[in-house]
Simulated assay, not measured.
Amino acid sequence: MSQVRRTLRVRVRGQGFVFKALIDSKPFAIKLFKFFDIEEARALFVDFQNDEMPDDIFVGNVDPFFAECRAYGIMDEFHKKHLGKEDPGLITAPCYGYIYITKEQEASLRSQFSSLEWSRANSDADKQIRALVKQFIPNKPIHTKVTPIRRMVKDMRTLQGIGVYPRDICARNYRGGLLIDFGMALTEPSCVLNVLPEWMARKERKRTWVHLMR
């Protein structure tokens, strides 16, 4: 990151922080993730459910960083299948990959934004902060004549059809009519959906629609 603009820092519901950063003089949205607390996450499940989800599988599904990586990986495969066919267009804000924040960059951020808190446990002391690099989309109100709600609903149907369930659907997670946050997403195959009762798994898959239609 060659430059981070102080005025465009955005808190991301406990998952981390988003910055507008200039890379080679071009603006990008950089989402920096806090460290994942597996014990806190496991407390949401009962013992027999936790027994069915080994740590590595659980972290790979529930850690917000990996949740987003899984979601974008599935979307990337979806777009590859459409190469040479009818272009489905963007269904979410594009993600260009992940990066690790160096200790020097972290120190620079700390000096500029003293309130940043990374939830770093002792076991995370030597680990670098993880980040995703996404297309920067200005934060402007959705204009229904420019971005029809029906297109957003169609995009959501597409996501669910390929096994991506964002779950955290609200106005702040959209930019220009495109969904930008997948930190709470569940993706197929999902160890979480597998251990839930069927009625609850169906509810989680449909949770997206409840929020989108409000």
Rank of each mutant, 00 (worst) to 15 (best):
M1Q: 01
V4Y: 14
L8G: 03
R9K: 13
V10T: 14
R11D: 09
R11L: 12
V12W: 03
R13S: 15
R13T: 11
F17M: 08
K20I: 11
K20M: 10
A21N: 03
I23W: 12
D24E: 09
K26N: 06
K26Q: 14
K31T: 02
F35P: 05
F36E: 09
I38V: 15
E39G: 03
R42V: 13
F45P: 04
N50G: 04
I57N: 10
I57Q: 12
G60R: 08
G60C: 09
F66D: 07
A67K: 08
E68Y: 03
G73M: 07
M75W: 09
D76H: 12
E77V: 00
K80L: 04
K80R: 14
D87H: 11
D87F: 07
P94H: 06
Y96G: 10
I101F: 02
I101E: 03
S111C: 05
F113Y: 07
E117M: 05
E117V: 12
S119T: 01
A121Y: 01
A121T: 04
N122L: 00
Q128Y: 04
Q128H: 09
I129V: 15
L132Q: 02
I137N: 01
N139V: 13
I142K: 11
H143P: 00
K145D: 12
V146N: 07
R151D: 15
R151I: 15
M152N: 02
M152W: 00
M152Y: 06
M152F: 01
V153M: 03
V153Y: 05
K154N: 05
G161L: 07
P166L: 08
D168P: 00
I169D: 08
C170I: 00
A171V: 07
N173S: 06
N173A: 07
Y174A: 03
Y174D: 02
Y174E: 02
G176C: 08
G176A: 06
D181C: 15
G183V: 08
M184H: 03
E188A: 08
L196K: 12
R214P: 07
R214T: 09
